[in-house]
Amino acid sequence: MAEEKVQRQATEHVGSYEVKLEGLEDGYRVTFKTDKEAVKTQRRVGASFINFLRQAEKAGWYIPAPFRLLLKFWGRYNQKMS
């Protein structure tokens, strides 16, 4: 992948998070950093919620639009990671 040119950037510490906003030539990138253990815990909780939504969808339950979009984007994310 070609190296992206950062035109502007700003970093801010919010609680235990470090938030970095970078202005690139063709868009923006936002990066959040925190404690690795906190990230692992949040990923487990997030994965459990995604699994619940998948099962609810398979069971034929009505899934509100924001959560349907979440399932759609999660599926794309997992395809790119494979």
Rank of each mutant, 00 (worst) to 15 (best):
Q9K: 15
Q9D: 15
Q9H: 15
A10V: 07
A10D: 08
A10E: 13
T11D: 10
E12S: 08
E12R: 05
E12C: 07
H13N: 13
H13R: 12
H13L: 12
H13P: 10
V14Y: 06
V14S: 13
V14A: 13
V14L: 14
V14C: 11
G15D: 04
G15K: 02
G15F: 02
S16W: 07
S16A: 14
S16R: 13
Y17C: 06
Y17F: 11
Y17V: 05
Y17M: 12
E18K: 03
E18L: 04
E18D: 07
E18Y: 01
E18H: 02
V19F: 00
V19R: 00
V19K: 01
V19P: 00
K20D: 08
K20M: 07
K20G: 10
L21H: 14
L21P: 06
E22I: 05
E22P: 14
G23Q: 11
G23C: 07
L24I: 10
E25D: 06
D26K: 07
D26T: 08
G27V: 02
G27Y: 03
G27F: 02
Y28R: 08
Y28Q: 10
R29H: 06
V30C: 09
V30M: 04
V30H: 04
F32E: 01
F32N: 02
F32I: 04
K33D: 04
K33A: 08
T34D: 01
D35W: 02
D35P: 00
D35H: 02
K36N: 13
K36R: 11
K36Y: 09
K36M: 09
K36F: 05
E37F: 03
E37W: 03
E37T: 04
E37Y: 04
E37P: 04
A38Y: 04
A38H: 06
A38Q: 10
A38L: 10
A38N: 07
V39K: 02
V39Y: 02
V39E: 02
K40N: 11
K40L: 08
K40S: 11
K40Q: 14
K40G: 12
T41D: 14
Q42M: 07
Q42C: 09
Q42F: 09
R43Q: 15
R43D: 15
R43L: 15
R43V: 12
R44F: 06
V45S: 14
V45P: 13
V45R: 11
G46Q: 05
A47D: 14
A47M: 06
A47Y: 04
A47F: 03
S48K: 06
F49V: 09
F49T: 05
F49G: 11
I50Y: 00
I50A: 01
I50R: 01
I50G: 01
I50W: 00
N51A: 13
N51E: 15
N51C: 08
F52Q: 14
F52E: 12
F52Y: 14
L53K: 01
L53T: 00
R54E: 13
R54G: 04
R54V: 03
R54C: 03
R54F: 02
R54S: 05
Q55M: 13
Q55N: 15
A56W: 02
A56N: 04
A56K: 03
E57W: 07
E57N: 15
E57Y: 08
K58G: 07
K58Y: 09
A59K: 07
G60R: 00
G60W: 01
W61H: 15
Y62G: 10
Y62I: 08
Y62D: 15
Y62V: 12
I63G: 00
I63T: 00
I63N: 00
P64N: 01
P64R: 01
P64Q: 02
P64F: 00
A65I: 09
A65M: 07
A65D: 13
